[in-house]
Amino acid sequence: MSGLEVAALTCAVGRRTVLTDVTFDVAAGQVVGVVGPNGSGKSTLLRALAGIAKPPVGRVLVAGEDLHRLPARARARRVAFVGQEEDLPSGLLVEEAVALGRVPHTAPWDTDAADLPVVHGALAAVGLSDLARRPVEDLSGGERRRVSLARGLAQASPVLVLDEPTNHLDVRHQLHFAHLLRGLGRTVVVALHDLSLAVATCDRLVVVHGGRTTTALPPAEALAPDVVRSAFGVTATPVTDPATGRTHLLMSLEDL
């Protein structure tokens, strides 16, 4: 297993610089959440972390290797990335969509046959085993989201980068998914918009706001009330769940 090291990264969309001087470490096996308001640059950061978009400045290291200097195939064996929206072609079967995660491990002319055990394992992990042979257009938005996640899992990379993976998921599947992430034993960087879910799921949080990011801090520290107020413009009150002892955040608009 390997961790992730982000060193002095600048992220840009086209020529517009979105984030500067991003520096944080993710220890091997940790789940790190990326939180921030809409348009703060979470997705841009994640694309740079996954090696999809080359940043103008800075490095992303996995096991000491700079992701952006690796060939696409070698990079995809180290980091799997699941983006926010995906347009799966109609007629594609669920297991075929998931099998694409095996592309970095096989030749482009190979069949899926050898990969089926891994594919079915990934489908079982997201609870979609029953739908393996269904066309993707028959699935609901949340189920399609889980298909994309299964593809990321099937990629079997030590590092997993996920952009808003819980979008479209019902509450049960959100919690199930949080549980799944923690049990993977992989290094995970995940953007989440639900702060309570982020607090419950992640070992560390990175807050993206105003063109900067914090380092990876423990959730209670990262989402201290003053940080939440300046980043999100809301008041956060931490409360302790009497049943589980876990901390939750209650949000309210400041001026109400």
Partner: peptide, 10 residues
Amino acid sequence: IGPETASAVG
């Protein structure tokens, strides 16, 4: 499926 997904799977 798209350039981003294609790039993600290498």
